[in-house]
Design a protein around this nucleic acid. Sequence first.
DNA 1: GACTGTGAATCTATTCACAGCG
DNA 2: CGCTGTGAATAGATTCACAGTC
Lengths: 226, 226
Amino acid sequence: MAYGYLIGSLPITTVQRLPSYLRAVREMRRQGREVVSSNRLGELLGLEPVQVRKDFGFIGITGMPKSGYQVEELVLAIEHCLCWNQVRDAALVGVGHLGTALLGYRGFAAHGLAIRVAFDLDPALAGQTVHGTPVHPMASLEPELRRLGVRMAILTVAPEAAPEVAQRLARAGIEGIWNFTGCPLLLPRDIIVQDQDIATGLAVLSAKLSALARAGQPRLPEGDPV
Amino acid sequence: MAYGYLIGSLPITTVQRLPSYLRAVREMRRQGREVVSSNRLGELLGLEPVQVRKDFGFIGITGMPKSGYQVEELVLAIEHCLCWNQVRDAALVGVGHLGTALLGYRGFAAHGLAIRVAFDLDPALAGQTVHGTPVHPMASLEPELRRLGVRMAILTVAPEAAPEVAQRLARAGIEGIWNFTGCPLLLPRDIIVQDQDIATGLAVLSAKLSALARAGQPRLPEGDPV
DNA sequence: GACTGTGAATCTATTCACAGCG
DNA sequence: CGCTGTGAATAGATTCACAGTC
């Protein structure tokens, strides 16, 4: 195994699974469970036990034969890998339906994310707060970002506006952009862009449903039990 | 190349890229461009040209040496693969911030998706419409779904409620669930679940930003031009 | 006996290298 | 030439098989 495609020192696929692990082990901690086996966790999350063990190996966690892994140790290690144990300030640009929903999402606290400020073109929104976050006019984007020292941006503007706004974010010193616009952003390589395009998920689901329909219904009326 | 991991007859990674291709070629059609090369498309979307050619090969599109691919042919072929040229009815369950945002999203029409009905626990919402979609009480979930013959559900309830609601959807004859709850759904295998967990994207971005920070800033103050 | 941990094998996806064509 | 199309090579990710440990 070469594993030369890493984020820091972790395979990207492992990083993608960390949130599910974290949710599960936090819940176990809440329930007072102190240890958990790769088997149990895999069953809960729909993963092979060996996958779980490999992933935990990558994040430097080692378990105990017979008993399993320490729940508390897992929580701390995963939070550390993702830096979800400290707060990261972010700005949100584009207070439409989706932007508003994200501003109202209470789960970000558990992910170490705090949206400090939002921006929108609509002058009626500027000066208001949405779900407790102050909204500023687009004109003050650069100075406000620099003043607050925010390094991460959540981009929820209309796709047409995305390239231009992204340019402005890049020039304002933003290091990472969480891109919900579906429009590909071509930016300098030192700016990290994470695309969160709802259409790719819908595409996979559409294709699977269509494949199913095309195949007729070669399945039993009732499938496997849960 | 074995390629035995297919949706219908397409690699899943290819399906995931189809929406970006589609957006790009639709835009080109709008501009009156009739042909496009894999090179140009790759540049626009940040992909290797050979990747584009392989993908088009999979969906059965063949281009012309020297000139490239027919834009119109690409649009039709991709829409066909995803069944985005016909309307698929869906129900949305959970009219919170995110559910409301999805009900207000106008882009679904271009993806062949029509949300016909929504459901929510809150009795104050039942009987109302949200962005034009009627909201029903949870109690009428099963009969209403069967009456409308809806086969796809968008799940935007709170994570705690997800497993139970998913069970009800499964029993009501739903074939595919687009799962925004972040909670893993363990359902019979004949029900297709597409997880759309915002946390995995945030995890990747967090890990990359942290890796960057840890590495110091071993880059030039200004990166490559666009 | 019931776990973990890991090298080897397999499977999947991308990229290379280059033949072929208009 | 400037493209496409594709077998071969490589890279990446999962799964197998099994040795080791409490």
